[in-house]
Nucleic acid binder design. Sequence first.
DNA 1: TTCGTACCATGATCGCCGTCATATCCCACC
DNA 2: GGTGGGATATGACGGCGATCATGGTACGAA
Lengths: 238, 238
Amino acid sequence: MALETRSERTLQAIRTIPMFRGLSVDDQSRLAALATLRDYARGDSLWRAGDPAENLTVIVRGRVKLVGSSGGSDVILELFGPGEPVGAIAVYNYIPYPASAVCMEPTTLFVLPRRDYFELLDRYPEFARAIIRDLTKLFLSLTRKVEEMRGQRIEVRVAQLFLNLAERMGKPGKNGSIEIPIALSRQEVADLVGTTVETAIRVLSRWGRDGVLVTGDKRFVLPSRDRLVEIAEGKDAR
Amino acid sequence: MALETRSERTLQAIRTIPMFRGLSVDDQSRLAALATLRDYARGDSLWRAGDPAENLTVIVRGRVKLVGSSGGSDVILELFGPGEPVGAIAVYNYIPYPASAVCMEPTTLFVLPRRDYFELLDRYPEFARAIIRDLTKLFLSLTRKVEEMRGQRIEVRVAQLFLNLAERMGKPGKNGSIEIPIALSRQEVADLVGTTVETAIRVLSRWGRDGVLVTGDKRFVLPSRDRLVEIAEGKDAR
DNA sequence: TTCGTACCATGATCGCCGTCATATCCCACC
DNA sequence: GGTGGGATATGACGGCGATCATGGTACGAA
């Protein structure tokens, strides 16, 4: 494991990415020769809104947030994890990135130049399908986000956020609890639901005291999913 | 509620739709034989959230709103006009419609069964490109909507809404004013920015008195775009 | 150690806007 | 003419959450 040439490591990364599963072994090798891996640290910017989209980027390791900005303050549009393409729409249409992308953890990216990406699309129609499916998921999640943003007390929105996270990356913990292994600062929670740090802190502090959602080390623990569901549905008989 | 007509009228409709421009005359005729036109009245539902997506639908005449619902109240996700496909993502992936679609005016739709749609996609790669481009536009507008929803005083959001509308469908009026020829009730304005009727009414009433934005018969008149821009940027030194 | 910085926490204040109530206008319909 | 429903308009009231301020904790750098 210690000594690897660059493209061998790339090849291994390719095998871990679902959207490349359908490729022949030959094509996987060829792809490895064309693409590169890049490592980023927490807080690094992959790109900023307005930059030209010259590469297809897929996450091999780590997490990336897509950040839009509206007059000074930020909104997190979506979170991406390993195996997911980031900013594929912009590359596909060769338009400037509509939002910035920032690493939330040490991250490794698979990077493929635009022209090679299109060649791949031509050779593998099902590959194109996989891309479209990812875009669809993204689109649906944005749709839901708009619906949730609507009015709703912000405590409800935070509850929806964590239910969503629990579903996407939750693992069973002790005594029937759910572990959400992701490092999210209060600020990031605020940006995800569209509120301020202070308000996010107030909600999470109270939940911590009440045992609804406990903040751990680089993770959250959800003792009872049902309590959150109640809050999310507004049946909060305060 | 839906009247179907025969293929001559259909053929004429096809010629008016930009995404079919690239088709050969032959294929246009064949398409006309496969598709149908349907007429709807104001308030008719094209489909409801959860319905299966069995047809590609493109607007020939009229306007359609895409409505998501979050716990009782509605949010308008997007407005569509002539030449634009509605719900294309759902058809493409054959997933249930994520939101309802409702006519805002008397509307004529071009309707093509799913299987014929895919056949078309296979024959015309550039046609697929056109579809993707439309989806991208939609995606970008949703992105912006999420950013706008963020906090922002609602007067600012209404201003952004009408600037957006002015850009998309504004026509020059008298004395350098801009006309926005669309019939939007106060309720619909409220659903578009995510607020209540009363608040929307208060904003529009005040703007009417101040001459910022005047409500006319089935249209809005914007005497000075700059005044709106000032409000939208929060530089409202009231 | 002492800074500096980032993050978390909590209180006080205030204004926007959601909610409820009422009134007017207009148009369809009987 | 009367009636009823929908859209528009306006006022009163109260709460949620933004804003400002202050302080505590952890951690790395000088």
